[in-house]
Design a binder for these strands. Structure first.
Lengths: 364, 364
DNA sequence: TTGAAAGCGCTAACAT
DNA sequence: ATGTTAGCGCTTTCAA
């Protein structure tokens, strides 16, 4: 009957209306659940729709209503489990409220991000969630604000743009964990991040990633408070790909005054750093202590299990999506934004440095 | 001037046309890069558009052209790095051809998948990539075919639906790796998967996941060819969550006739299995051998590094997206579909079973 | 409650 | 090359 399989054009409200012997407007009302429709008409329309296998054209619907029930998400790297998990939080939340998600991956390129935002706006998404590749160059985000479409930030802040931001406070956790390392006797604490910089690092310098800036500030403060000099030479930014990170790790651990502890800025970096340490024949934590950001399940499987800074990434996704949808729907905030706090999970990868005695004499 | 910041309605072609003193049609042609437009007109229109900060409404554009330049992707769990990586392949490829991606996560629930497909169709995506939660119940996929919109399958096949499928041939790699284990002396080889089943497992049974069925068939054949009995009691499906997997692992390794080798069906399962092994105080591979599907970077960091079955997941994403886009654009296939072959990467987690002598006497 | 008609912002015929 | 006029499939006045 109806499944003749040929390239039939889509069934429209007009078709349904004709079949149900009502006006287009009435059919549309019944189908779209709005306006006033008598039970009799609704029944006939719904029956006809079913019979004809009618499916609404959401594009046309969106054109009229100005609502697409879609939110756009822009992240640097969906392959990174950090974002994979945040994405899960976002999609779960979106689905619950009847929204779909368009995902764009920028490879942490600002140009791609500018493009992504523009495309999403052109597609008339109802709102945007962006994990900005740069916290400094934010004019395109400012444009989103001016377009009037809701925007929230994920994972990183953006200077000069007045938007709700859902990210962990990195300064305090960085301070806390650095203090922990200092207390264990470490003075040569390295920090490895892939964040790109043009200029070589100097203390207090603003980086593309507010998160990394905050972490460095935290390290800085911990050293200051301990009355110790800040080993800026051990800050390694623009770390690049896996090979490059391994090389940097070897550099850090070789030389006359090697690092006694290494902090990896994310799980991907951590993999390469730990691999390089193992390849060097050094052991954790006897030869070098190790700390990383993000608590992935595999960090419990290494020997020793790794001490990590756990971030509530899934919750961050949920919070960002909830807030965005709230704004889209014009509802007021029901309460304070959820606290997104990172925690130091002490497992086995931090110990005393080999030359602990010497340092404790020198340091205090 | 133009940035008064108030809630101004969107600038349309009509506005641009008026400003450029040309007809709406001419403005649209200039802005949309189609039809014939004189240089003079084009310039004026583009200038006016710039001045007014005109942005096309892609929704309206899609309505007319019937093209949304969007593809829908439906996966079971974006949090799983397996899909994260495939997704990366898809988005990279899509972007290259000017397509956007709407992602829907189904949590491996068929009902959610049926819904997802419907929503995507309603949104008039140009094509669909689905990693079907069930290879058996596929009527909703058949409906996609009937809708005439291009569809390709990712990671798993679907019976009764005639579509291009991009998945690794699991039968042969499963056979090969099982043979490897048998050769090492193993007879009690367990297989742990989260695929859900109603009935208890019996040999040859068809499962929701074609991939798992194929793997089990491969195991089966390897045993048959070795002239050995098939230890069906060690096949553990519906393994559930992390706690449940740990419990199953303990069961497998306890009892009178324990497993001497365990195969984990994916990276997430592997984490729990290895964790349980470690908790039991057993060591790999001395007490129990271990093999897992998917080659994640962390598998090189455990002690010993894990033997894995590597799958070209990123390439799979690329292949699926390329094929889909080719179909959308009505181009013919330029060559044979790329081979997606899995490879056994032998690292340190497979050794001889403890009671190897006994077995080699018994088995031949 | 119903229907006719206007419109969303754009593209696509069809003239000229 | 340009303009006029219809649509795309739906929602939304506005009358009845």
């Amino acid at each position: 009957m109806s499944t003749d399989g040929s390239r039939r054009r889509d069934v429209t409200v007009a078709d349904v209306a004709k079949a149900a012997k009502v006006s287009k407007a009435q059919a549309a009302r019944a189908l779209g659940n709005y306006g006033a429709v008598s039970d009799d008409v609704r029944e006939r329309v719904l029956a006809a729709a079913e019979e004809l296998e009618y499916r609404p054209n959401e594009l046309a619907r969106s054109m009229n209503t100005g609502k697409s029930n879609t939110i756009g998400v822009v992240v640097g790297d969906i392959e990174n489990p950090h974002f994979g998990l945040a994405m899960r939080g976002i999609t779960d939340t979106a689905k619950k409220s009847g929204y779909n998600v368009i995902l764009i991956n920028t490879d942490e390129e600002r140009a791609a991000e500018v493009d992504a935002v523009r495309v999403l706006l052109d597609k008339r998404v109802d709102g945007l969630i962006v994990a900005p590749a740069s916290s400094l160059e934010t004019s395109h985000l400012q444009q989103v604000r001016e377009s009037g479409r809701p925007l929230v930030l994920l994972d990183r802040a953006a200077t000069g743009v007045d938007v709700e931001t859902f990210a962990v406070d990195m300064g305090s956790i960085s301070y806390e964990s650095t203090a922990h390392l200092i207390e264990a006797g470490h003075r040569r604490i390295a920090f490895v991040s892939t964040v790109r910089t043009d200029a070589p690092y100097v203390a207090g310098m603003k980086l593309d990633s507010s998160q990394i800036s905050d972490r460095l500030d935290g390290i800085h403060r911990a050293f200051d408070d301990a009355g110790l000099p800040y080993p800026s030479d051990l800050i390694r930014l623009s770390a690049g790909d896996a090979d490059s990170i391994r090389r940097i790790t070897r550099e850090l651990l070789g030389g006359p005054d090697p690092a006694t502890a290494i902090i990896a800025s994310d799980g991907l970096i951590a993999l390469s750093v730990v691999e390089a340490i193992q390849e060097s024949g050094l052991s954790i934590p006897d030869d070098v202590s190790f700390l990383m950001y993000d608590d992935f399940a595999w960090t419990r499987l290494t020997t020793p299990p790794l001490t990590v800074i756990a971030q509530p990434v899934y919750d961050m996704g949920i919070a960002a999506a909830s807030a965005l949808i709230r704004r889209i729907e014009g509802r007021k905030s029901t309460g304070p934004a959820p606290e997104l706090v990172a925690t130091l999970i002490r497992r086995g990868s931090i110990g005393a440095p080999k030359d602990a005695e010497v340092l404790s004499q020198a340091g205090g």
